[in-house]
Design a protein around this nucleic acid. Structure first.
Lengths: 149, 149
DNA sequence: TTAATTTAGTTCGATATCGTACTATCGGAG
DNA sequence: CTCCGATAGTACGATATCGAACTAAATTAA
């Protein structure tokens, strides 16, 4: 394949990623209350899986959003009583975000609704397209992540 | 594999897609002037490849963003003189967006810069991860797209 | 032909995002 | 201990996003 076509393929890859992200975020956001975004929901899921909590900075690295956006998202989740934000005893500059029981329950309910909504898609496609592309996506994500400095 | 693990894999797929989208958009946006977004840049690219132009509605379908967001994005591109917006002679409710020569040139320059910025990534990974996952991404995108109604 | 329905796009208002500049705290060098 | 550069998070302001309600044009029905 010509190098030019390879470059084109990379662009198409990123375009498809953008559209899939758009489609799935929109779909998810119809289940979420008010203006809660897919990213905010992702953060909640991340915290539910980590009972010791994480600092805002760790979260902004994990989701690759600016710290200033993270401040806003965490404040919003805290307003909904889905997480708590305490000062980090080891470093008073820092904080620790943790999921509340309501947060965990909220995640469970939304995830269930989302699974139902995705059921037709999974029956149609099967799990293979997801299964076989996941390792490549992880590879690309890690390389992009590494490069950023 | 258990059905439960399959579901988990699907979620990880969407998470990876979200993070890759975030990383690549941020990277691209550092090359773009002012507050121009990756989506707006994508729209310009779409129009450059279609000399006859497209209507705002076609564009909002292609990129899966609400019409009201498209209005804003097109207005912004028009302000930068990168596109023109004329009323559609076949349907006076409608409009046609077309790239201007400046738009085409602007796209060329930014694409070139982006290609240079992506060069290290491509050398490291090779084109295979992109090449082999693209068909699956297209499959998933088309299914999601179909479903939306 | 007129009236009702549908469709394309915009206006408006609420909220999300994020860059810049700031404050508070930490941790190392002397 | 004291200074100073680095680091965590926030305030603020500009702009992007997008749902709801609207206007105008096209299409369908009667």
């Amino acid at each position: 394949m010509k190098p030019e076509d390879e470059t084109n393929e990379v662009y198409r890859f990123f375009t498809e990623v953008g559209i899939i992200n758009q489609l799935i975020s929109t779909k998810l956001e119809t289940f979420l209350p008010g203006r809660m975004t897919a990213t905010q929901f992702g953060i909640l899921g991340h915290l539910v899986r980590r009972p010791d909590g994480e600092t805002p900075l760790q979260l902004s690295n994990a989701f690759q959003v600016p710290k200033t956006s993270m401040t806003h998202m965490l404040a919003s989740l805290e307003n909904h009583a889905l997480i708590t934000l305490e000062t980090n005893p080891n470093d008073k500059r820092s904080k620790i975000a943790r999921s509340t029981p309501q947060g965990t329950e909220f995640l469970r309910v939304c995830t269930e609704q989302m699974s139902e909504a995705l059921y037709p898609l999974l029956s149609e496609l099967g799990s293979d397209p997801f299964h076989s592309s996941l390792p490549n996506l992880m590879l690309i994500r890690e390389a992009l992540d590494q490069e950023r400095d």
